[in-house]
Design a binder for these strands. Sequence first.
DNA 1: AGCCCGTCGGTTTTT
DNA 2: CCGACGGGCT
Length: 664
Amino acid sequence: MTAQKTTSAHPAAALEKALAAYRQDLNEAQWEAVIHDGGPLLVIAGAGTGKTRTLTYRVARLVLQGVDPRAILLLTFTRKASREMLRRASALLDDRCSAVSGGTFHAFAHGVLRRYAGRLGLDRAFTIIDRADAESLVGQIRKESNVPTRGFPTKRTLTDIFSQCVNKDRGLEEILADGYGHLMPFLDTIAGIARQYRERKKLHRFLDYDDLLVELRNLLRTDPELCQRIAESYPHIMVDEYQDTNRLQADILYLLAHRHRNLMVVGDDAQSIYSFRGANFRNIMAFPEIFADTRVIRLEENYRSVQPVLSLTNALIAGATEKYPKHLFTRRPDGPLPRLVRTMSENAQSRWIIDEIRLLTRRGIGLEEIAVLFRAGYHSFDLEIELTREGIEFVKVGGFKFMESAHIKDLLAHLRVLVNPDDRLCWHRILQLLDKVGPKTAQSICDTIIDTRSGAAGLLDAPFSPRLAAVLTPLKELFSRLTREELSVAQMGEAVLAYYLPLLKDLHEDHPRRARDLEQLLEIMERYERLETFLADMALEPPDQLVENGLHLPSGDERRLVLSTIHSAKGLEWHTVFVIWTLDGRFPSLRAIDTPEDLDEERRLMYVAATRARENLVFTCPMQAYDRAADMVLDRPSRFLTDIDADLLESIDEAPDMDWRLDW
DNA sequence: AGCCCGTCGGTTTTT
DNA sequence: CCGACGGGCT
């Protein structure tokens, strides 16, 4: 970051000078991408080749040359990624960069839909439902549909299937035939549930994550005039992590950019790890077919990793059946050889890692420079216990989500019905918190409330049996307050919390911790003027104050080890990376080993994990583990690692007698 | 009989 | 944190 700010009295000269400084910071290929203008651009950026840097500098360059920052649309995979980029661009140039329009596809779609909801025939008061809500709704329909008790997919699988239909733009039958052959006999029943799911979303005024994108595409397709207006307001579009976008997102981009054609997409086909969401690594290669005359720039110099790490990751990805031809090179020759360490047990794996972390920190490596990565959230449970016991501070990213924890959803449910009284999901949740109220009772109360179209007021007036009436009294009082008084968003939150805290105490052993979470949520509510905006943000982009209790530690707080799923580690890097549970059958997962495409995706996932390491890369696995589902003993390291030349990866077996010695 | 509630075993990955 | 299952209440 050596570029200087433009303070000269001669704008033209100052501009030249600033551009020259940018050029100093970039290699040839990066610079080409940064100064590219007018026309579609595809940047294929291998791991660690300065993809973010290139995007950041391009934003700064455009703003420097007088482009209105609001006219730049920067679409990223997470809001965190977009904020980080804009922060860096602002540091490079000035604060104007923070005005760049940016965020996730979903947040962008939401913004447009809210603004033009009327044109779509969408009620303005729609509610965004998250994955858990979608599953509950599907679950309700599934229950009512009298499905076979054996062999019929769970609500989770059903929701997955419906989502894939949308994201892959394919029919139900195709999706089933392709990935769920054993469910073909249920095709008609599943189709019925899918239809009801669509109908009920409409009835309750719900949009799920997929609907946000679908409705945006519809809007742009059916209203060319509006489409053009929106397209013109963003004459510069940039997309990060393009390998993880799907057909639907590509359609939206095409609609927005096909006229001005100022579209830059950046990605790495070898790092495509979201096929379960409809992404396909071939999409990125197909980009030049959609936009004729696409300029393709490849970034191949790796700035992140030392040669031994790079050699290993090159070998890893070379084993894929689909090839990703690239010639990544580094100028950082020296470094330790990556290791594969086999331990006697899962717990020994945890304790081995803790010992290794102690060694590293004694050598002066900060805890925050170390990460432990894994395939699935629960893979780190044992390690978390040991870390806590040892007093090592850590933060866990990915896996279970804060926003989906019961107490948060409970609180939000009471607010959601204020905005959308048709929100049956929330009524059910609210009612079932009450003593003696289960699914059936909730259903009947719900019918009373909604069928009379009276919303929260219906709850107040409807006649109930004496037993129920008593149970419902506090709730009635709450809603009478919420609807009658003019309350700010935060005051509503306070009222709900006051009502909910006693319930929370009965419900959860760890209520003090959960109560603190809720207090934090209240603090965040202070920032909002409108309840709808607050609720939408909670569904789409919850502030990371809530999500990750300080991963980036701007204030130099205590330093913490990072535990993360590989999916959530995308784009990040650390001095030392441990990849745990690299046991064949766990990673790659047993469910992936029968299909070549799935297996390749697992390999890319391993590639993403390994390429996060700058200097020190360690794979660990227990020597054996029993897999109950398959009734199998897993006792070989990941096939991705056993394939690799011995001179690229050092294999170490923890001595059997070490196990009990480490105990004391 | 219908319904609620506690317990126990199994969990991919995310906007 | 889901689903199934069985005890026990109304």
